[in-house]
Design a protein around this nucleic acid. Structure first.
Lengths: 335, 335
DNA sequence: CTGTTAGCGCCTTCAA
DNA sequence: TTGAAGGCGCTAACAG
């Protein structure tokens, strides 16, 4: 069996009691240096490894953090999870992952499962309409949690980015370049990020005192196929836009595919800017001008906030908005 | 506290013993339908939730599977993990993840950590030189594990792809198109996939009775920066190759970046084919001809093999090689 | 078909 | 500074 050396065995080998061993392991009460050393030696000799399940049961707590993440595909999530990973590793926290598939029913089940595992805390990217399912569950079984990406209108710890400002900025860039018919492919409805990015788009026009044609907002559902459909639809119009702002990575891929299939080139036939950066953005054409989120930092920050909360549950909830960076390339028509 | 309703409470409410409750929960021995119903009702009424840690301790086993994965970035891993996810969800298995960073020291630590958590089984993508560290650890603490991606010369359950055959095929395609100076950017040394893909490259030439210029094999270390350096080096030569085979996704990105920086176009100035598919391969230029691995299927298969092994440890070890598909686009110069 | 009874490995109060 | 002992919630013989 794996790690079958128990504290009892160490205690016997060291000629002390289990409680002493427990205390040297956890540093939970002073132990005489000499005794301590004897125990340490015995642990070493027998190759003792702690058994977290037993500790969890006895102590009523875990060092495992639950991750309820919508998906692992696309480019955004992996980097985020890498951030979780790295920060968790630094603090010896384990990560239990569960995918929620952007669906509040799946999500509730996933979270229930994580809760059953008696996790110390939870990191979640809320699905649309989670208020009546997952959030309710979380209120019934209160554990520390932090919301990531889709910042909500609830009292909780949250990390995300400035969606509105950065969207406005990148759209304004298109306006400044002289575009008047700028379409937006919007994300999945019910996500706060979708709302905020749309607000940014609208704000850019309002700021310039330009009227927005509401038909230029096309839903893309945050998926590749949705992005493709949206672009196809835009191209089929009698007065297609001259520029497009895509609100997330997968949709951007779909939209570009649609352009390719129509034999149109970016930026010559259609200018394009997008939310979310592609790690390979410099290697392929078109070279997209994007809003780059600090994914890794967001992930790391989420874990830090959770740790803070675990240490002091009485702290006031904190909402953190990191600033994305606008990566200026050529798809907007510049250069 | 979350899920603080215990079996004892349910038993009391239902007027039966704890063991009866345990048995209806686990279906581990026949229970009279009437009693069963009473228990079920009580569970429902009290909102009972199982507590896996307690179960683990008592039963000496878990339903958690450890994932020791080299990374989550790049395009290959996320899809793979999605496969793990989906299949694990179907069988109510939890996933505990730990990144190994392609380093056998990190890896050993990560695995030790997972072992301590008393996982039921392990999925691992072995780092170079893991034999003396992680593999040794795994022999000392024998638990069911399956090796993914880098198929090893050990008796164990393994899933991966046909690296050699598919590499040979894609390189042969370049040869048939008349290229004589075809370079290969090779992966991280110590990975079996690196070895196999190189063997495929060599085999393609041998098959045609053509001598290989060994200087055309350039190391890329399986990283983007490595791929870039390799390409820069190739381009600086007095007799640069006319085509390149990149052995993995990150390196391909790096190599393309180098070409771009040199103002060279694919396939006009340089033909290019690559191992690993990009999900966005159809949306961007150059449109790469690639060896596409069935990542999701590999992930799902890994979990299936692990389940099989958990159910019957006496089964002979199995090595599974799935066939990648060659996705033919234009970067090879066709069309 | 069901109940009783030991633990699983560890933490933690209470004594000494 | 240390030990003894009870219990965390559940499983699994062993009886009945």
């Amino acid at each position: 069996m794996a790690g079958s050396v128990t504290m009892t065995m160490v205690a016997r080998a060291a000629g002390v009691s289990v409680s002493t061993v427990s205390h040297v392991v956890n540093g939970t009460r002073p132990v005489a240096p000499a005794t301590r050393q004897i125990v340490l030696d015995a642990m070493d000799r027998l190759d003792f490894t702690h058994r977290p399940v037993a500790r969890s049961l006895a102590a009523g707590s875990t060092t495992t953090i639950g991750l309820a993440i919508s998906s692992l595909s696309t480019t955004y999530w992996p980097e985020l999870v890498a951030g979780f990973q790295e920060e968790a590793r630094r603090w010896n926290l384990q990560l239990l992952v569960a995918a929620t598939a952007e669906d509040n029913i799946h999500e509730e089940r996933a979270v229930a499962n994580l809760l059953a595992h008696h996790i110390a805390g939870l990191v979640i990217t809320p699905a649309p309409n989670w208020q009546d399912t997952t959030l309710r569950l979380l209120r019934e079984h209160p554990i520390p949690f932090v919301i990531v990406d889709r910042i909500q209108d609830v009292k909780a710890d949250q990390v995300g980015v400035e969606n509105e400002t950065s969207s406005a900025a990148i759209v304004d860039h298109l306006i400044q370049r002289g575009h008047t018919r700028i379409a937006m492919i919007t994300g999945l409805e019910g996500l706060t990020t979708t709302e905020e990015r749309r607000a940014g788009y609208l704000r850019a026009f309002r700021h310039r005192g330009v009227e927005v044609d509401p038909t230029l907002l096309v839903p893309g559902g945050s998926t590749e196929s949705g992005g493709r459909r949206a672009m196809v639809e835009l191209l089929a119009r009698s007065d297609p836009p001259t520029a497009v702002f895509s609100a997330s990575d997968s949709m951007t891929v779909g939209a570009l595919r649609a352009l390719r299939e129509a034999n149109l080139t970016v930026p010559d036939d259609m200018a394009m800017v997008a939310f979310d950066e592609f790690p390979w953005g410099d290697a392929f054409e078109p070279r997209l001008t994007t809003v780059a989120q600090p994914c890794f930092a967001i992930g790391a920050r989420a874990i830090q906030m959770l740790r803070r909360r675990l240490e002091d549950p009485s702290l006031p909830p904190q909402t953190l908005r990191l600033s994305p960076e606008i990566v200026h390339r050529s798809s907007c028509g510049c250069r």
